[in-house]
Amino acid sequence: MSSTLSHLDKLENQSIFIIREAYSQFRDVAILWSIGKDSTCLLWLVRKAFFGQIPFPALHIDTGYKFKEIYEFRDKYAKEWNLELLVARNEEAIAAGMGPDKSKFNCCNELKTVALKQAIAKHGFKALYLGIRRDEHGIRAKERVFSPRDEDFEWDYKNQPPELWDQYKTKAAEEEHIRVHPLLGWREIDVWQYVQKENIPVTSLYFAKNGKRFRSIGCETCCGPIDSDADTIDKIVDELKTTRISERSGRAQDKESDYMMQKLRSLGYM
């Protein structure tokens, strides 16, 4: 007998295994839902893992600078999928006028990382599911599937725990929370092929209008569209098979300086 599982089946099974491992250990968890393709794909897998009844909240970190399509998509599917939706905003920083014009580094840190810290403190989450992938960025490629953060949210990237044979880190007292990364081994094209196969809804921002589409979505202020005529999922998959442009080429925080992503992430950025 030979293996009948396709590449996407294998990825799906591995992700569901990870999702269930984390829930069996933590119970007090939330899924971070940015409404982008990756975290929406993750949400889809979480629905599968729990037979359609997700036993924990979906957390949206809202910087106030998101596209209107993001808010519309969020509210529509939160209802349709019966999600317990939590929206976290760093209201103080937003009121004080924090924005990318001040400093991109501070803006990402204040409106995303700090807002996340506030939400974790408020709800007492011990673990968070995140849809990051290794092929997005060299720093994310160094991640573990279960990745601890200390009380200051710091990622000790120079001394990560060993991770063998799907035996993942258990939480020690001094660790604030564990980041769980079920999509770490997926590539961008895997996500889109899975979206295609499963017919997962994604926001319209990904589809080309007037020769432009978004390939990676963050805040409206800090991400730009790419040149593309891909206005359907099939065309996006075809485009990715041939493109040599990197996925996050439209994302400002990757370009600010050589190590900005590392510095942001070591402070607790996603």
Binding site: R134, G138, I139, A141, Y157, K158, Q160, R187, Y259, Q262
Partner: peptide, 21 residues
């Protein structure tokens, strides 16, 4: 391309495992 950490590049060594496609 693989040694993305600042410490890795400055010291010219790989600290942690990474995966590329």
């Amino acid at each position: 391309l693989l040694d993305h950490l600042e410490e890795e590049r400055k010291q010219g060594i790989t600290i942690d495992t990474t995966q590329v496609f």
